[in-house]
């Protein structure tokens, strides 16, 4: 009955949205970036401690739907220790996955729970919003990013 829905709202996603990981500000963050979806008002701030090109620690704060919050939570879990280049490569893979549903890369790991989002075109922006913010953070961009600045 709820097939597509349980694809979208997988247990892992519901769990992360209810108990988000790394859901705090980092006092020693040397990079922060804000992401905002003007269509629904969802907004997140990513805090990162970067050592050169490597993410040493990462946290987030903000509010939004189950998809965007779980995406931010799982993202912070995934990106600790990753380099700027790796973050951008993962962004492209996640972007591809949530728009096509294709999971053909081992590196995607537990991010694969977001593959079901592609069946809900109106929700792709929710999943990708925290990713826009984290790319802005690692690139050291100051201005808030919105989901309306790019295709998704």
């Amino acid at each position: 009955m709820f097939d597509d829905l349980t694809d979208l709202y997988q247990q892992v996603i519901l769990d992360h949205s209810k108990s988000p990981r790394n859901f705090h500000k980092l006092a020693n963050a040397n990079r922060t970036a804000q992401g905002h979806n003007p269509l629904c008002g969802d907004h997140y701030t990513i805090y990162a401690v970067m050592d050169g090109d490597v993410i040493k620690d990462i946290g987030f704060q903000g509010a939004g739907c189950a998809i965007s919050k779980a995406s931010a939570s799982i993202l912070t879990d995934t990106l600790k220790g990753k380099t700027k280049t790796e973050v951008k490569a993962l962004f492209d893979k996640v972007h591809d996955m949530v728009t096509t549903g294709k999971v053909n890369d081992g590196e995607i790991g537990k991010l694969a729970v977001f593959a079901g989002v592609h069946k809900f075109p109106a929700r792709v922006k929710c999943a990708i919003l925290p990713w826009h913010a984290v790319v802005a953070a690692v690139e050291g961009r100051q201005e808030p990013v919105t989901t309306e600045m790019e295709d998704t």
Partner: peptide, 20 residues
């Protein structure tokens, strides 16, 4: 969240609006 309400309702054929 309102958008989650609307997504699930849509799967049941109910067209609602969520947002500001």
């Amino acid at each position: 969240h309102a958008h989650d309400v609307v997504t699930v309702a849509d799967q049941r054929g109910v067209a609602l609006r969520g947002g500001h």
